[in-house]
Amino acid sequence: MSFREKTSWISLVLTLIGFGSYFVTLVYGETGGHAGHGYYIGYLIAVVVAITLIFIVSTAIVAAMAPDDANAALDERDRAISHRAAYFSYFLLVVGVLAAMASYHIGHGAFWLMNGLLGAIVLSEITRYIAQIILYRRN
């Protein structure tokens, strides 16, 4: 497994766990009325910081195990895979952004607009990581 594929796996797992926990907490809390919006903003910041730190440490460990792979520049296959994965994820991003804007127009507030946009970004990133992993396996 190449270094790029490993980092795609790390990003996928961290995103699923981190933002998954955020959105589960958000939906559960909002439907039960447990916390104010400030709590979720704090939770989101904690998730982003945790994901960033764990990603840095995990990637450093993976790079230390195969420094030649980690130091290699992106080649034509890496770039082709990256472009194709971005192509797939872009579609989801556009649909998610439009859905978030529609929900705002039908009466949901700015807080849900923000979370809808965040959800669109997260979904498109998850799609991108999955597409990268599949393309690295198949190509």
Partner: peptide, 18 residues
């Protein structure tokens, strides 16, 4: 100017090089 994995993919007929 490509990675070992790209050479392996080309050899196996999985990737069409430029």
């Amino acid at each position: 100017g490509v990675t070992r994995q790209t050479i392996a993919a080309i050899e196996q007929g999985k990737y069409s090089p430029t």
